[in-house]
Simulated scan of single mutants.
Amino acid sequence: MNDHSAMWLEEIAEGSATAFRRFYDTHARLVYRLALQMTKDPAEAEELCQDIFMEVLHKAGQYDPARGSVEAWLAVRTRCRAMDRLRKRQRMAEAEWMEEALPETAWGEGQESVELAALRRVELEQVKEALQGIPPLQRMAVYGSYVEQRSHREMAELLNRPVGTVKSLIRYGIHNVRRRLDAMNGKEGGSSQHETFKARP
Score class of each variant (00 low, 15 high):
40 K>G: 12
53 F>H: 01
67 R>F: 07
75 A>V: 07
72 A>D: 03
85 R>W: 13
68 G>K: 08
83 M>Q: 11
85 R>Y: 04
38 M>W: 07
40 K>N: 14
94 E>C: 10
27 H>N: 12
43 A>M: 05
55 E>I: 02
89 R>W: 07
36 L>N: 02
34 L>P: 00
83 M>V: 10
47 E>A: 10
48 L>K: 02
58 H>S: 10
91 R>F: 04
94 E>L: 15
64 D>R: 13
100 E>L: 13
89 R>Q: 12
94 E>A: 12
24 Y>M: 03
38 M>K: 01
38 M>I: 03
55 E>T: 08
96 E>A: 12
57 L>C: 09
95 A>R: 06
49 C>N: 02
88 K>S: 15
52 I>H: 01
76 V>K: 07
59 K>W: 09
85 R>S: 04
29 R>D: 14
98 M>Y: 01
78 T>H: 04
92 M>L: 14
72 A>E: 04
24 Y>T: 03
32 Y>T: 08
86 L>Y: 12
23 F>Q: 02
90 Q>H: 15
90 Q>V: 07
78 T>L: 08
47 E>M: 03
63 Y>K: 06
22 R>Q: 12
72 A>Q: 04
94 E>F: 14
25 D>V: 09
50 Q>S: 10
61 G>T: 05
55 E>N: 13
70 V>R: 00
74 L>P: 00
58 H>Y: 10
76 V>W: 00
29 R>A: 15
74 L>F: 01
30 L>S: 11
55 E>K: 09
62 Q>H: 14
75 A>K: 03
55 E>C: 11
54 M>D: 10
71 E>D: 15
49 C>F: 00
44 E>F: 04
37 Q>T: 12
84 D>W: 10
71 E>Q: 11
22 R>V: 03
